[in-house]
Computed example of a mutant assay.
Amino acid sequence: MIKMSRTAAVAALVTMGMFGGVAFADSGSESDLTKVTVDDTQSRITVGGQGSLSATPDVMRLNAGVEVRRASAGEAFADAREAAAKLTKALLDAGIQAKDMRTDELSLGPEYDNYPHVSGYRAAQGVEAVVRDIEAADRVVDAVAGVGEDVRLNGVSFEISNTRKALRAARDAAFKDAGIRAGQYAKLAGRELGRVLSISEEDLTPPPATFGGGALADKAFVSPGQQAVSVHVRVVYELV
Rank of each mutant, 00 (worst) to 15 (best):
T15R: 14
L91I: 06
R195M: 07
N162Q: 09
P57C: 03
A217F: 10
G214M: 11
T37Y: 00
S31F: 10
A174K: 00
G17W: 08
R6I: 08
P116H: 07
P116M: 08
T103G: 07
G179C: 04
K99V: 14
K176Q: 11
V240M: 04
L108D: 07
A78N: 11
P224C: 02
L167C: 06
R122H: 07
V235A: 02
D133C: 01
E111A: 05
L62H: 02
G95S: 03
A228S: 15
M18K: 11
G214I: 06
D203I: 12
A55T: 03
F24K: 14
L13I: 15
N63F: 12
K176V: 11
D177C: 03
V130W: 02
A189C: 14
D133I: 02
G65E: 10
E75Y: 05
A98Q: 12
A25I: 11
Q125N: 06
Y115K: 05
A80Q: 01
G225P: 06
A64D: 06
A12K: 15
L193A: 11
A84N: 01
G48C: 08
A215C: 13
L239G: 01
T103P: 06
D218Q: 09
E159N: 05
Q50C: 07
D100G: 13
D39H: 04
A90N: 03
A169Y: 04
F158Q: 00
A85E: 11
E201T: 15
A64H: 03
D58G: 02
S119E: 09
S43K: 08
A217R: 12
K165H: 05
S119K: 11
D93K: 06
A137T: 01
Q125H: 09
A123H: 01
E202K: 13
G214W: 07
S27M: 11
S27V: 13
G148Q: 11
V229F: 12
E192C: 06
E201W: 12
I199N: 10
A64R: 02
V59P: 02
G21W: 09
E135W: 00
N162H: 06
D218H: 05
V151Q: 04
I45S: 03
A23M: 10
L193T: 08
M4P: 03
K35D: 05
